[in-house]
């Protein structure tokens, strides 16, 4: 069984499900997907991108220069998609355990 993804990595992978994005767009997408809860610093983002690329979950594109600034789009690999899906299922199963029990408590209070 693979290790659970850390939250920044989970949201970075989730941000790329709809297609490749460059650094700043990933930061914005992560913030939006997490309802403003996960605000990654740029250093944390690039650490996560490096790690996920090394693990084969992301594929960095070629560097391009836009308005004098270099940037690179990152895309999800099939392994990355499998990993983030597996993590989402694990979180969902974990959530179900609690939700099922709290709904019993709510239905039949002591």
């Amino acid at each position: 069984m693979s290790r659970p993804l850390r939250e920044p990595s989970y949201f970075v992978l989730a941000a790329l499900i709809d297609g490749p994005l460059h650094g700043y767009a990933i930061l914005k997408q992560v913030l939006e997907l997490s309802d403003g809860r996960v605000r990654l610093s740029t250093g944390t983002l690039y650490g996560a991108l490096e790690r996920l690329t090394a693990d084969g979950l992301l594929l960095p594109g070629a560097e391009e220069v836009v308005e004098g600034r270099p940037r690179r789009a990152y895309s999800l690999t099939p392994t990355g998609l499998t990993a983030v899906t597996a993590e989402a299922e694990r979180l969902e199963a974990a959530a179900r355990v609690v939700m099922a029990r709290t709904s019993i408590v709510r239905v039949s209070p002591a």
Partner: peptide
């Protein structure tokens, strides 16, 4: 990666 990181940082 430094220039790419700094470019992202300039936006964020």
């Amino acid at each position: 990666h430094g220039n790419e990181l700094l470019a992202t940082l300039a936006f964020s």
